[in-house]
Amino acid sequence: MRTIDDKIIYALNTTVPTQSFKGQVDASATCQDLYSQLEKSYSQRDSAIKRCISQVSTTVTKLREARAQDPDNVTVNRNLKKERTKLQLMQSELNIEEIVKDRSYKVFHERCRNHFIPSTTLSS
């Protein structure tokens, strides 16, 4: 899902013209389209990560309840630990997502600032 972020520099280099070629390509439309793609991608990824966090949180809650009823059940304790670890990883993925977004927005702003200024601020 991070393909657009991985290839943003390439996309900007191939679609946003340098000063010498600025008359040949509509840089404003290109930058606006790329910004829309970034926003759509971020929205989808954020939604997917939060949906996963919600599902794992529900599982953790159920396992806690099962552990409360039978604290000596090794299987429940093992599964609870595994699900808690999974939950922590998914929550840290939200932090990683912010770092990726900031990096992509900085690159975008650097190349498109003269062609397109989004109505929303670039930093979240």
Rank of each mutant, 00 (worst) to 15 (best):
I9V: 15
V76T: 15
T61V: 07
F116L: 05
D46N: 15
A66N: 14
N79M: 13
L122I: 15
Q37H: 06
K82M: 04
L38C: 06
I53R: 04
S20G: 03
F21T: 01
A29G: 03
I49H: 00
A68I: 09
L63E: 05
N114D: 05
F108S: 01
T120W: 00
Q37V: 13
L89Y: 06
L80W: 10
K62S: 14
V76K: 09
A11Y: 09
I8M: 12
L12F: 09
R103V: 14
K86L: 15
D46C: 05
Y105M: 08
C52G: 02
A29I: 04
D6N: 14
H109A: 08
E65L: 15
Y10I: 14
K86P: 13
F108C: 03
Y35G: 03
V74E: 14
T121A: 10
S123W: 12
V16A: 01
R113K: 08
T30A: 09
Q55G: 02
P17N: 15
K7P: 04
S41D: 11
S57C: 03
K62A: 13
T59M: 12
D5G: 08
T3N: 13
K22Y: 02
L63M: 10
T14H: 02
E110G: 00
T14C: 08
R111N: 02
K62T: 14
V56P: 00
C52F: 00
